[in-house]
């Protein structure tokens, strides 16, 4: 029978004087099946996420929560009135915190969509864990030494993933995406996308990968032992005369046998490919 253990961590501080603005939480979760990979999902509105792989069986969560600046008159809710009298009342710093941690077997979800707090989330996970991370308005996502599959999106900050094996599906919008593989997993394709940020990838020499790059306005810099060639698309028209249309922004290179794909897309960001 599935076992779900939902922990709602909430603290509300109301007593005067104004209290410390930081709250810290530490929590350790044991997996239902420690021999199998954990699957960790973390989704935050504001803050940062750091995930580190380690040689252990538990998932260890620590979080430091700070409230964002008090709500200003400009962004109060539509229903609230700014004309209510507050004379004689003390303004209370709202340090109420909302962070939900849910466990279902080997699946752990950490979620906070509260717009009024900044959470610095740190998670230690067994090496072979799978990750699904999303940060919507925050700072950085950093991943170190996690060997399972990784899905990560950072809307407003950089992503750094070091000592990983993939597969990885990662997306940044305006900031840099840095990935350092210590091995390249060929079980499934990987995809790295950044709109205006740069993408910087380091691959071991033995990686068995077919790299395909599309960039509209970015430059490509490579230190790999592989030749990049333009990928042309050929279309035949109705009269069977061949038409060759090349977009110029699609370049491909094969390392070793090129067994598995690594897809890289940017609009303006430059792409850096390095040997490990």
């Amino acid at each position: 029978m599935r076992k779900i253990c939902a922990l709602l961590l909430a603290a509300c501080l109301l007593s005067p004087p104004l209290l410390a603005e930081e709250r810290k939480i530490n929590h350790s979760i044991s997996l239902q099946e420690p021999a199998k990979p954990a699957h960790i999902e973390a989704s935050l509105m504001n803050g940062s996420i750091l995930v580190e792989g380690y040689d252990g069986k538990n998932v260890e969560i620590s979080a430091v929560v700070k409230p964002l600046k008090l709500i200003t008159a400009e962004n109060t809710k539509a229903e609230s009135s700014t004309t209510r009298p507050s004379k004689g009342l003390k303004k209370i710093a709202n340090t109420a915190m909302y962070l939900e941690v849910e466990k279902d077997g080997n699946q752990i979800s950490i979620d906070s969509m509260n717009k009024n707090q900044n959470i610095a989330l740190k998670i230690r996970v067994p090496f072979n864990s799978n990750l699904d991370l999303a940060l919507h308005r925050g700072d950085a996502i950093e991943i170190n030494n996690v060997h399972g599959s990784i899905e990560v999106g950072n809307h407003d900050g950089p992503i750094t993933a070091k000592g990983i094996r993939g597969p990885i599906v990662a997306e940044c919008l305006r900031h840099d995406l840095v990935v350092i593989f210590d091995q390249y997993d060929t079980s499934k394709p990987s995809s790295l996308n950044a709109h205006r940020g740069n993408i910087d990838v380091t691959l071991p020499k033995k990686s068995d990968v077919n790299i395909e790059i599309k960039t509209y306005q970015g430059e490509i810099y490579s230190g790999l032992d592989a030749e990049f060639k333009a990928v042309d698309t050929v279309d035949k028209d109705a009269s069977e005369h061949e038409q060759r249309i090349s977009f110029g922004g699609a370049m491909a290179a094969k390392l070793n046998k090129g067994t598995q794909q690594l897809l890289i897309n940017t609009y303006r960001g430059d792409i850096f490919l390095r040997n490990k």
Binding site: V169, A170, E171, N193, T233, D235, L263
Partner: peptide, 17 residues
């Protein structure tokens, strides 16, 4: 919800005649 998947679908459609 993954733009990587959607990009890959566009690439796959591009291969159709």
């Amino acid at each position: 919800n993954s733009s990587a998947v959607r990009l890959a679908i566009v690439d796959a459609l591009a291969k159709r005649n």
